[in-house]
Computed example of a mutant assay.
Amino acid sequence: MTFRRAVVTGASSGIGWATVARLVDSGWKVIGVARRADRLEQLHRETGADVRTCDVTNQADVDALAAYVAESGGADAVVSNAGGALGLATVEESSIDDWSRMYDVNVLGTKRIVSALLPVLRASVEPGRAASILGVTSIAGQVAYEKGGGYNAAKFAQRALLQALRLELAGEPIRVIDVAPGLVHTEEFSLVRLGGDQSAADAVYADVPHPLTADDIAETIVHALELPPHVNLDQITVKPVAQAAPHKLVKGELKVNA
């Protein structure tokens, strides 16, 4: 059976939501996965995507998701997008609980999803096709910055997980793709990171000329998944023009003919 069916975690907002919408618009069958049932119901109403509640830090939830995907038609792409940052403090002063939570969601969550759904991908892939595992990491997993140590550590580890997985799957028709966004203006990322302080969250993006949007990253994800099966974009770094590095962000208008 020829099909294009994707599982997208972290689908209740931001990049995950936008990715589900883009894939549906491109003709994919999509299962949007997240913890918040009310948001998933809204996603279903707006996009028509199938939805499943699942906490990627809960093994029983992930196992139930894998069983559902296998029983309902399989999948040929998994987008491991669930993640996030907590806190903005030095390594010395930051919360160990925040570090633990970030590692569990970003790294162990990706590991749980890969381990549970990889057998489903293997069973689904057809001759001449390629299955795909795509992880949404971050430029925080490439370059460390002050007061970002916990998030840096989690995203560096997630990136290493994907690199090891790519080596382990060599010889199988399964692509491993790492999409690493820079500054993306979404409704929740900075708000959650900064403990619900809306003014502080708004300040992150204030005066930045054209930060990325969730749809920019979703477009990149869909492009990578739809390339011919022999093409693998191992790692895609996507930053706004105003961001030269995590610690180098232009505010105000970009200079012309400087």
Rank of each mutant, 00 (worst) to 15 (best):
A206G: 02
V24H: 03
A34Q: 02
L88H: 13
R36I: 04
L162Y: 11
G10Q: 04
D63M: 09
A245G: 11
A82N: 07
L254Q: 10
A201G: 14
V222H: 15
W28A: 01
D98Q: 12
E126K: 14
G73Q: 08
T220E: 13
L118Y: 04
D178H: 06
V79A: 09
A218Q: 00
S13H: 04
I221N: 11
L43P: 11
S190P: 01
K111R: 11
L121E: 02
D38R: 11
A201C: 12
I221F: 05
V114S: 07
G182M: 00
A131D: 00
A214I: 00
S199H: 13
V107K: 11
H223W: 12
R193N: 05
G128C: 13
L233K: 02
G135M: 03
G109Q: 07
L233E: 06
V231N: 02
G182D: 00
W99G: 03
A60D: 12
P228T: 10
G32P: 05
L165E: 05
V20W: 01
A18P: 03
Q243R: 10
G148K: 11
G74V: 04
A164V: 14
V114A: 07
G27Q: 01
L212P: 07
E187Y: 07
D202P: 10
G150H: 13
A49C: 02
G10K: 08
D61A: 10
A70M: 08
E168L: 10
D98E: 07
R166F: 12
R122M: 08
A160H: 06
Q142P: 09
H44M: 03
A75D: 14
Q158T: 13
G109S: 10
K29H: 07
I177M: 08
Q243V: 02
T19M: 12
V241W: 02
P246Y: 05
G14K: 00
H230M: 14
A70D: 12
V179M: 03
F156S: 10
T47S: 12
K147H: 13
S80E: 02
A201N: 01
G32W: 03
H223R: 07
T19H: 06
T213Q: 05
Y145M: 09
D215Q: 15
T2Y: 12
V56Y: 01
R5Q: 07
A34M: 00
S100A: 15
A245D: 11
G74D: 00
V79N: 09
G10H: 05
N257I: 15
I139D: 14
D216G: 09
S138H: 04
